[in-house]
Write a protein that binds this DNA or RNA. Structure first.
Lengths: 229, 229
DNA sequence: AATATACCGTGTATATATTACACTAAGTAA
DNA sequence: TTACTTAGTGTAATATATACACGGTATATT
């Protein structure tokens, strides 16, 4: 640990990867920067950590300032500290990710002054990113790929009520491969974390599917269980 | 990312969890602090990150200064940044762990001035630790428990030549449970990462066991494979 | 009303992986 | 020679994972 008082000024920031799922595509929230350095470049949303907040609090604050969204669980996944990663000095960035429900009320709040605008971008069509954000993004995407295999985080991307086909789509898009419908359903239902709502989709052409809800009470039992798709 | 220049002075440190395996016990390297704050307390070895080094470089340097050991792979696992974690100001700590071969030439180099001495302590007999180091340690131990199930990091704790029984002991100590000998050997050998050296243990009472070596060339194939013990 | 469309929802057989379980072989020490 | 201690081995039962195809049903169209 720290043995002497700080010998040089340094600062840390938070960068957030916000994943969303919309129209069958995995998306990420990017901002278009309005300040130097990297003015006019695309970047992950982020900000400096304030003196009086923990890293987790800071991540939540930044998410809230950008999107108006609260009470979302964000997970820290890696800290980036290469010497030259920021042109203005020694700034270390702690990276977080979160998975959000899009749709309906998800319109983004006006962004604070440092960004022109924020957009949800398909992860397969990313523009060139500022700083080392491409590296941060790649590592975050790898992280959720691994995590989705072990924990049911895919629900966080869907509306509260969803069909099994929608859930399968999320897995397929994140894992980048097709899954067998019967095997997927068999396995997913075997975990007993889905509650059948005895309710059908509305407003769809063609036959409506059954809606399910994620059952939080049963979630604990699943934790740590090995899932493979 | 960072939008404005740093608004307050802050600093980051590295804390290292160095695991070792000796006499059938999992051990961790602790130092006895020689400076305030927490003078005379036990702590994880750590230090401030210098201006001209990356986090990974800093972790390697700190390990080298403490133990004389070089070329060990250290892995970052979490960053701790609660507001009150350090009594002297806002210091965020990036935590790393490494697994070391003890035995023979592993004597520790004289420790730099900030510590009285460093000792290998059985993880089951930890003293009270300075700062939030108990929390850091707990999280690091959890990390290697999960990781040992997926990747063959247990080898790093053993001498270059080892027996299957020694390897099984490492797994048992880290996982905290007994494993079946036949199933363990069957599975471990099935990964094809062990090279049979056609050589026996020396200097043991009773029957000597076959020595194996970890085969790095074959390691890649195993990566990501699900292992369960 | 009849028909076409497109998605929903289901089962079985095979292969693979995991678990449970106990004795003989080999080397050392006295 | 005997007693002791650890090494080293196989099989059967169970559980999990994979591969694979078609009839059912609500909607849209004519």
């Amino acid at each position: 640990m720290i043995e002497v008082l700080p010998q040089f000024n340094s600062t840390f920031s938070i960068d957030c990867i916000l994943f969303g799922f919309d129209e069958g595509e995995l998306k990420v929230l990017l901002i278009e920067r309005n300040e130097e350095p990297f003015k006019d470049w695309w970047a992950l949303p982020g900000n400096l950590v304030s003196e009086n907040e923990s890293l987790d609090q800071s991540a939540s604050r930044i998410l809230h300032e950008l999107t108006g969204i609260e009470n979302v669980y964000m997970e820290q996944f890696y800290t980036f500290g290469d010497v030259g990663r920021h042109p203005q000095g020694r700034i270390i960035s702690v990276a977080y990710y979160a998975m959000l429900r899009l749709g309906g009320d998800k319109a983004l709040k006006p962004i604070s002054n440092y960004a022109k605008q924020a957009y949800w971008i398909n992860v397969k069509e990313l523009p060139k990113l500022a700083f080392d954000h491409q590296k941060i993004f790649d590592q975050g995407l790898e992280k959720i790929k691994r995590r989705i295999k072990h924990q049911p985080i895919a629900f966080e991307l869907l509306p509260e009520k969803f069909t099994l086909t929608q859930l399968q789509n999320v897995y397929e898009v994140i894992l980048g491969k097709k899954l067998d419908k019967r095997n997927f359903r068999k396995k997913m239902l075997s975990f007993n974390v889905l509650k059948d709502l005895n309710e059908k989709q509305k407003g769809v052409s063609f036959r409506a599917a059954t809606l399910y809800r994620f059952d939080k009470r049963k979630y604990g039992k699943l934790f740590g269980k090995e899932i493979s798709f």
